[in-house]
Design a protein around this nucleic acid. Structure first.
Lengths: 144, 144
DNA sequence: TAAGTACATGCTTTAATAATGCATCTTAAT
DNA sequence: ATTAAGATGCATTATTAAAGCATGTACTTA
């Protein structure tokens, strides 16, 4: 039970973007450098963030990406659900569980999962910027 | 984000035990057979269930194990927390995340995790026995 | 319009961890 | 003593996430 690095990288990307002046594009290289994370993996994360509509990407020279909405409009439950994948937290098939039709567990865990995401729904990207000044300082001391 | 088979096997074991008449011991072999799951893995699960005090194990000939308490006294949050391991749902170290000191994410996810387990705390092993008759029937048609 | 730079895409490989297998030990009943 | 049960530790396999690599496509700018 732990979110994937993939999801983590996505959230970190959004945090980074939120600290930039509006309209300024960031690049994949810039974010790899800032967080010291591998470009190839981040590549895929950025691509999905774009597909899901959390960021707007632009190809070509002087391309890059920026937030598609205000930080306060980007809900954490949405981001994590999409990046993490929204599968059940218990797998009753493959291999099949013989008591599956009589078993309540999947329903309880599904409800628990809902409760978890409902809680996250009260937070947005903006909630992650509480120490925005510190974040900016960390990033500023890392860029070339 | 999915519970481990290990945890799943533990829950299934408890469900099986709860359908037995009080005082009757089950064996690892019996449960592997009932669920068609590998003995070696279950072995470790049973051992931990005993260590954690959810079941009482007895070695030696005619040994086995039984529930250590009434189903209604065995809380699902306790069982899952122990079997699943109670680590944070996001890993900010190894490798270290450069914004860790300024980042709110871990606190929000930790709170979400608490909300999840608080929800599970309203359920017990008894909650999993809603279709007890069906469960017993499934088991009875599987035993030798 | 050619060159360069950025994201997009698909495939392959590696790493991490869960799951399983195997051997042996310990305990208890008969 | 023998047998049957869980306990324990190490080795192996399977699964999946993570990372690497190669190349395609879009867009800017000289």
């Amino acid at each position: 039970m732990q979110i994937k690095k993939y999801t983590d990288y996505g959230l970190r990307t959004l945090i980074y973007l939120a600290t930039l002046p509006k309209g300024r594009l960031a690049t994949i290289n810039e974010i790899c450098a800032a967080y010291e994370i591998p470009r190839n993996h981040l590549n895929k994360v950025i691509h999905q963030l774009g597909k899901e509509g959390f960021i707007i990407t632009r190809r070509g020279k002087n391309g890059g990406f920026q937030l598609a909405a205000e930080p306060a409009e980007i809900r954490l439950d949405h981001v994590i659900r999409r990046l993490e994948g929204d599968t059940p937290w218990v797998n009753c098939h493959s291999p099949v569980c013989v008591i599956e039709p009589a078993c309540e567990l999947k329903h309880i865990l599904a409800a628990g999962k809902r409760v978890f995401y409902d809680y996250l729904a009260s937070y947005t990207l903006h909630s992650l910027l509480h120490k925005r000044n510190e974040l900016e300082q960390i990033f500023s001391t890392r860029e070339f």
